[in-house]
Every structure is written in C-alpha cells, then in structure tokens.
C-alpha cells in the first residue's frame, strides 16, 4: 500500500467536498476490490474517502412499483432483507451468492456497480431489471450506466446514493462460479418486466450485456424449451484460463434455460 490521507465523512455533501479538494481521491465503500488493489500497489490515491459513516446510504425500502436500495447496503443486508425477499426474491438470492460470508458482510451494492467488474453479479440484475442508479447529481438508467470493462457513466467524484429496481413479474439469476474467485464464470439474469423479457449476461464478455437472441426467443414463449434451438454466439465472449468463449456461450444458454425454469 502507498500512503494516503484517510477521511470518514458523515454526509454526502461532506464526502463530495472532500473529493473535490483532494488531488486524486477515491471513495471507499465495502473495499472488497479497492483494498486488494491498494495492497498490491495497483492503485495510488492521494485521499481515501470512507463512506461508511454516511448512515443514509444504507436504507432499503419498497413500494408497489420499486425496490430502492441504498448504495452502501451490504450484500448480506440485501440478501437478508424481508423487503427484498418479498419484492424481488431473485435479487436477494443473487446477493446471497456473492463471494463468501466475509465478503457479503463488507461488500456493497453501490461499490459493486461503480466498480463494474465484468464478472460481478449485480450489474446483471441492474441491467435486466431496468434499474435506475441515483447519484448525488442525477439519475442514470442501467442501460446507460455500464460502459465497458470497469467503466461506468459516473463522472469523477460522482457518488451513487441508491438504486431503484422496478419490481418485475418474475425474475431469476443463475450463476456458474469461476471455481477460484467465485465470481460469475457466467451469470444470467432473466426477468419479465413491464418493458418485456430481459436477459442480462455477466462474466461471459468484457462487460455485462443483454442477449437479444435469448430475449427474442423468450418474448415469443417464456419457456426453457423456447431456447433449445437458440445459438448464442461465442465471437465476442472471453477466453481465459478458466473457460473458452465456446464454453461460456454454451453456459449462457444453459443458465438462461435454468433461470427461465426457476423464475
């Protein structure tokens, strides 16, 4: 780790002010990716602004149309929230499957979205459910939020405050774990939303994406068998030491079928 100045503000305004003042600041949410990269000296912020003192960022609330989760809600808080379990059980199940117990007690929804790891679980849920990401400056549709590998629409210093998930008719998330990291080797989130059937895929490509072939087939008939003849192209998918693009393409289809069956 390199040295940095540490701050623990108690309000969003204070956090934003600290960010502007510092030469190269980073927000610290649950720290599950940032701390590791600091320890490996891959990141060298001048100032670390720890958000854990801002209580308002943790709230979880549901109404008839939306489930709104504070950016600093931990994966465990989401997984065990009665509101989440009632409104979007698939989201509670997704959160319960992230990492391990220690990670789930520290990692946060906002941190996961802002980091936009190409194998993270939450981006798939946000994209499939058509979530709205609220920041201290504006509201961003999930469709516009995820730009690319570890890249989002957030401007420097812009802070996610909460995320609103429209409550779907049905939804399910299926993850096939990368055996070491337990990130998604492939993860598929299927939802029947007011806008139609959505299928978001994580882990398989350079960033989360929607599979139009799967959405089209499921729009005609929301049934696992409807995907039997669908061909998921491997062309743009990742190949690495854990899986080839072919295997990932195959898993996208298998997991989509399982998600439909379980939804």
């Amino acid at each position: 780790m390199y040295n940095f100045n540490y701050h623990r503000p108690t309000s969003i305004a204070e956090a934003a002010a600290l960010f502007v003042k510092a030469s190269e600041a980073r927000y610290l949410a649950g720290g599950q990716s940032l701390i590791a990269s600091l320890k490996m000296r891959l990141s060298q912020p001048s100032d670390l602004i720890d958000l854990s003192g801002i209580a308002e960022l943790r709230a979880i609330k549901a109404d008839s149309a939306n489930l709104t989760i504070g950016a600093l809600a931990t994966h465990n808080a989401v997984a065990s929230s009665k509101d989440v379990q009632r409104a979007i059980p698939a989201l509670a199940q997704l959160a319960a499957g992230i990492g391990d117990r220690q990670i789930r007690n520290a990692g946060t929804l906002g941190g996961a979205l802002a980091n936009n790891d190409p194998a993270a679980c939450y981006p798939a849920a946000a994209l499939a459910l058509g979530a709205v990401i609220h920041t201290d400056k504006r509201a961003i549709a999930a469709a516009d939020f995820f730009i690319g590998l570890y890249e989002t629409a957030l401007a420097p210093g812009e802070l996610i405050t909460s995320v609103s998930f429209p409550i779907p008719k049905t939804a399910n998330y299926q993850k096939f774990q990368q055996p070491a990291s337990r990130f998604a080797l492939v993860g598929v989130f299927i939802a029947q939303t007011a806008q139609g059937v959505r299928c978001a895929v994580t882990g398989a490509g350079p960033g989360v994406f929607r599979s139009s072939v799967i959405e089209q087939a499921l729009t005609q008939r929301f049934d696992a068998a409807a995907l039997d003849k669908v061909n998921v192209a491997a062309a743009d998918l990742n190949s690495d030491i854990h899986a080839t693009a072919d295997y990932r393409a195959h898993l996208v289809k298998v997991l989509a079928q399982r998600a439909v069956a379980a939804a």
Binding site: D240, H242, A245, D246, Y247
Partner: peptide, 17 residues
C-alpha cells in the same frame, strides 16, 4: 467443468488451457 464438458461435447475447438 470445462474439461468434462469439452470431452462430452467432443469439442475439438477449445483444448483446455
């Protein structure tokens, strides 16, 4: 899983890394 799947699917394309 990839090795087992490749063996089962007879896929020659992706010999396990």
């Amino acid at each position: 899983p990839q090795r087992v799947w490749q063996a089962l699917s007879g896929s020659k394309a992706g010999k396990a890394a």
